[in-house]
Amino acid sequence: MTSEFQPPYVPLAGLDQSLKTRGFALISAADVRQWLPATPDELQELHRGWNDLPADGYLKDGGHYRRRRHSCFEVRGEQVQQAPHRAHWQPLEYNALHGGMQRLFEPMDPALVARPVWPRLLGRVGAVVSALRGEQPWFVEAHAFRIDTTDGIGRPTPEGAHRDGVDLVAVFMLERHLIKGGESRVFEANGPAGQRFTLLEPWSLLLLDDQRVIHESTPIQPLQAEGFGWRDTLVLTYRSGGFQGD
């Protein structure tokens, strides 16, 4: 039996204040649906795209546990426009394992990003980072991740505790299927304080002020010794001034 630290959710009214004072905020699934707003059916339709994610061919640790897609968008208030497809790039400063590489992933399913809930979701998170940093255009990278137990364990953050080099990171938990582990850990970037918890609810949300905190998720394992499981997330990063690598 494993212990799980329950997420310290904040009410929607306290979202902005939590980001400003603690550098992160956790929102329950019910509040996320109200906040977007979105129906359970709309969110379920989005999640169906995770059953068709190509393997990540760039893992330097030799693993086969990560599948993903990646697309970029520009968010200007309520206006959301998809940017031309491009490689994902991070400097070594923020990703010691995979930084400095031009990693070109398959784009997100056009049918998925054409759904009305998609621009609503990106715009809503954009309003949060605008409240934190001021109204401006945001350059958004969207990552659809499935971490599975093909190798016995799966590593959501093989690079370890890190920052992403952006203004805001949004991690939507979509599904945990027959796994244990996958604990989220958030630490002050320039201090000793930290917090750990396990995101369990489908479509609960972790928001991170990337300039103030570092984060990681622990490896996952199957619930049964010979079993197979996975962890699905949607990760959005919001950056001012342009995409990394421009």
Rank of each mutant, 00 (worst) to 15 (best):
G182I: 09
G182L: 09
S184G: 11
S184D: 01
S184K: 08
S184M: 15
S184T: 08
S184N: 06
R185T: 11
R185S: 11
V186L: 12
V186Q: 06
V186D: 07
F187Q: 15
F187D: 09
F187Y: 15
F187M: 13
E188R: 14
E188G: 15
E188C: 11
A189G: 06
A189M: 05
A189I: 11
N190Q: 13
N190K: 07
N190G: 02
G191V: 09
G191S: 12
G191Y: 06
P192D: 11
P192T: 07
A193Q: 14
G194I: 00
Q195D: 10
Q195I: 15
Q195F: 13
R196G: 06
F197P: 01
F197S: 02
F197H: 02
F197Y: 03
F197A: 07
L200G: 03
L200R: 12
E201K: 13
E201P: 01
E201C: 05
P202M: 03
P202N: 07
P202F: 00
S204F: 02
L205C: 12
L205N: 02
L205H: 03
L205Y: 01
L207A: 01
L207S: 01
D210H: 08
D210M: 07
D210R: 00
Q211S: 11
Q211W: 05
R212C: 04
R212Y: 00
R212S: 09
V213C: 05
I214P: 05
I214N: 00
E216W: 08
E216I: 01
E216Y: 03
E216F: 00
T218G: 08
T218A: 10
T218M: 08
P219R: 09
P219A: 09
P219T: 10
I220R: 00
I220K: 00
Q221D: 02
